[in-house]
Amino acid sequence: MERDAILVAGSAGTGKTTLGLQYLVNGAAKFGENGIYVTFEQMPDQIYRDATNFGWDLRKLEKEKKLKVVCTSPDLLIGGDGEHLLDETIRQLKPRRVVIDSLSHLGMYVEEKNLRKEVYRLLNYFKTKELTSLSTWETSQIAGQELSVTEVGTSFLVDCVVLLRMVEIESTMLKALVVLKMRGSDHDLSLREFKINSHGIRLSKPFIGFQGVVTGIPRRSR
């Protein structure tokens, strides 16, 4: 939904960055919606390079003023008095989409007791600018029975939560996606396998015949 705040949670290597980039590239190429990609630790030149593996020419999109890749420190994104870091870019690009990769990095700069408030402030900033935001969030576990999307209650602040998860099925690690929350919608609750190929993320069939997939260690249903 327009102006929604979407959280994509998952451990390292599950495809959060790829999903975020695909969201922006599709927005620019298919829907005429410009976008901003904000990265903190991963440098843009690496992102440009990795994106070419999927046939996405981010530099070209930037030249066409359909996309802007911004690299900064997380605390600068929170803002303070005066001009916000993204104000000028938003004025120039008139984007409809923004990806923050990764929102969890804010935790390194903001005290835990203030983190939820600052995330709330940032998400509201995007809403007032009429942007739909997709923020990634790193979860620690790769597989295992413990399931926690975020430790600071961020999932309560967003409108949609998508969980990406590695699951082990018959000695093979597969990738699973599930929409845990979509405010105001009777959404699909099925766990679906997804694959990352040369075009990006492709959703596949739901996991049928297994239970406990979301824990990462499913068992065959009887």
């Binding site: 843009p44 802007k68 911004v70 690299c71 900064t72 420190s73």
Partner: peptide, 16 residues
């Protein structure tokens, strides 16, 4: 040159 969208404090630039 490689990262024209970089916008950071001096400390952040140095770190990178």
């Amino acid at each position: 040159h490689n990262n024209p969208g970089l916008l950071d404090r001096l400390e952040g630039v140095a770190l990178r």
